[in-house]
Amino acid sequence: MLIGPRDSSSGYYFYYDVDGFRVLRGCRATVQYNGGGDVKVYDRRGYSTSMWVRITLKSQANIISYTY
């Protein structure tokens, strides 16, 4: 499944403990977890490798922004 900016994992059937998303090299993702105040920034700008981020512990991930 591909989740883009302003999309949410809550609308998909399989999102518990196994889903994740990839932050491509040179990109920055801002993600809000559990629909609330837990916001994380994954910044791969300046890196030569991409990164997988796993959605765990029955969390819901909302990608607030994704810049290339």
Results as ranks from 00 to 15, higher is better:
Leu2Asp: 11
Leu2Ala: 13
Leu2Met: 04
Ile3Val: 14
Gly4Tyr: 14
Asp7Phe: 11
Asp7Thr: 13
Asp7Arg: 12
Asp7Met: 13
Asp7Lys: 13
Ser8Lys: 14
Gly11Leu: 01
Gly11His: 03
Tyr12Ser: 06
Tyr13Trp: 02
Phe14Met: 11
Phe14Asn: 10
Tyr15Phe: 08
Tyr16Ser: 05
Val18Thr: 02
Asp19Phe: 00
Gly20Lys: 02
Phe21Leu: 01
Phe21Trp: 00
Phe21Ala: 04
Arg22Leu: 03
Arg22Met: 03
Val23Met: 01
Val23Tyr: 00
Leu24Trp: 07
Leu24Ile: 05
Leu24Tyr: 06
Arg25Leu: 01
Arg25Lys: 13
Gly26Trp: 02
Gly26Phe: 02
Cys27Met: 11
Cys27Asp: 09
Cys27Gly: 05
Cys27Ile: 03
Arg28Met: 07
Arg28Ile: 05
Ala29Ser: 05
Ala29Val: 05
Thr30Trp: 00
Tyr33Gly: 01
Gly35Leu: 08
Gly35Trp: 07
Gly36Trp: 12
Gly37His: 07
Asp38Ala: 07
Val39Glu: 10
Val39Lys: 10
Lys40Gln: 15
Lys40Glu: 13
Val41Glu: 05
Val41Ala: 02
Val41Asp: 05
Arg44Gln: 15
Arg45Lys: 12
Ser48Leu: 14
Ser48Ala: 12
Ser48Trp: 15
Ser48Thr: 15
Ser48Lys: 10
Thr49Arg: 12
Thr49Cys: 09
Ser50Lys: 01
Ser50Cys: 03
Ser50Arg: 03
Ser50Asn: 04
Met51Tyr: 07
Trp52Ile: 13
Trp52Lys: 08
Val53Gly: 05
Val53Met: 12
Leu57His: 12
Leu57Gln: 09
Leu57Ile: 01
Lys58Thr: 08
Lys58Val: 04
Ser59Pro: 00
Gln60Ile: 15
Ala61Gln: 05
Ala61Thr: 06
Asn62Val: 12
Ile63Ala: 01
Tyr66Thr: 00
Tyr66Gly: 03
Thr67Ser: 15
Tyr68Gln: 14
Tyr68Thr: 08
